[in-house]
Design a protein around this nucleic acid. Structure first.
Lengths: 202, 202
DNA sequence: ACCGTAGCACTAACCGTTAGTTCTTCGAAA
DNA sequence: TTTCGAAGAACTAACGGTTAGTGCTACGGT
């Protein structure tokens, strides 16, 4: 499964990576808005249409790891130890993600994102997607209908926690602070569920 | 202040309104993406550049009342009765806003928004702006530094409440449910604040 | 060795958006 | 009232992201 899956797919992946690397380098060198798609394509030695066959939009070149992020969150829910409660598992994962994003390597990228309106807008849309899929994972894990308000609410709060902590002066402390708030919010839904149906959350 | 503020400004406002009305009508008739800025300009009998002198982007034609929304939220904080607690005041305002958005008149517009990726993206960016200014208002009201994590967190949660409730099967019940969670989250920050400094929230 | 297809290049355009400039019209000072 | 400054709006022309439409090429299975 992890062994050579054919030359074709390797070449495709290599092209994609080359485009992403080239784009990020140019963006950091000259600024996001100053670099055009045509510049990226020329520097990576591919056609403009090839860029768009690998990435849905210019902004997606920056948020290349979008899918990873989403999957790590849902994995934190569905793949946690059987006796581990939901919220702490999410807190732990968000803590790790925040640490990664505020590290020396990723910091210049996020500074660029914060400075570009187009990138901030794109991030806002991503947040909604991530919250959606996290809500689905949570609802499935709890055996609830997928559109339950409480699940969608907690999911959004968790996504908020990432964005807020990332920008805070002390990111790790912020994660803890926000998650203590989320924990309290979650307790309320458990109380209401047990009051209404005699069952409880985890 | 409410008397005729000059013919010039009335004409300008009329032009703006005509553009917004024309755009919304065309969007609802033919679909958001099927209608171009040039179509809107032609139908409203103005130049394309005039459209952009009144609205920053195509999406802004749909979210015309953006500024109203933001101001109502901050007003709910800064203009509430002296003895009214913060969270219930916000709950009341969000309740009113949700009721307005799910009414018969506004429903088709929000359906259009939900179906268009571009509009959802724009809304995501708006949410961040609204959360920012709400956080500033809350922090000012409580006499805290403007970037306090707890304030920014509560502000985001409140904005989330609007989006979540708007899409829920029973919007009004959803507002109550989510705000009971927010209330609990807020209690936590009061406890931590009084534990650390002997002071308390409202 | 052979063929189907996936990946990529190229052209040409569409659409949102902006800069630069000119024309018109309103508001207020003289 | 006359005049002048300024603001709104028009027009042109372009830039940058994005998308068909169309072949060509090289890989992978038969």
């Amino acid at each position: 499964m992890t062994v050579p899956p054919g030359r074709r797919e390797r070449k495709k992946a290599a092209t994609r990576q080359k485009i992403a690397d080239t784009a990020l380098r140019l963006f950091l060198e000259h600024g996001y808005e100053a670099v055009g798609i045509r510049d990226v394509a020329a520097e990576a030695d591919v056609a403009v249409t090839t860029v768009f066959s690998h990435f849905a939009a210019k902004e997606a070149l920056v948020f290349e790891q979008d899918a990873d992020f989403e999957q790590r969150l849902t994995q934190a829910v569905t793949g946690r130890a059987p006796d581990e409660p939901l919220i702490p598992a999410l807190r732990h994962e968000i803590q790790a993600l925040v640490r990664h994003c505020t590290g020396d390597g990723a910091a210049p990228i996020w500074r660029m994102i914060d400075e570009s309106p187009a990138l901030r807008e794109y991030e806002g849309a991503m947040r909604l997607r991530h919250a959606e899929s996290l809500a689905t994972a949570i609802a499935a894990d709890l055996g609830l209908p997928p559109a339950t308000t409480a699940c969608r609410t907690i999911a959004m709060f968790v996504i908020d926690a990432f964005s807020l902590a990332r920008e805070a002066a002390d990111p790790e402390a912020a994660v803890d602070e926000i998650f203590s708030m989320i924990e309290a919010a979650w307790e309320v839904t458990r109380a209401e569920a047990s009051g209404a149906r005699g069952s409880s959350g985890r």
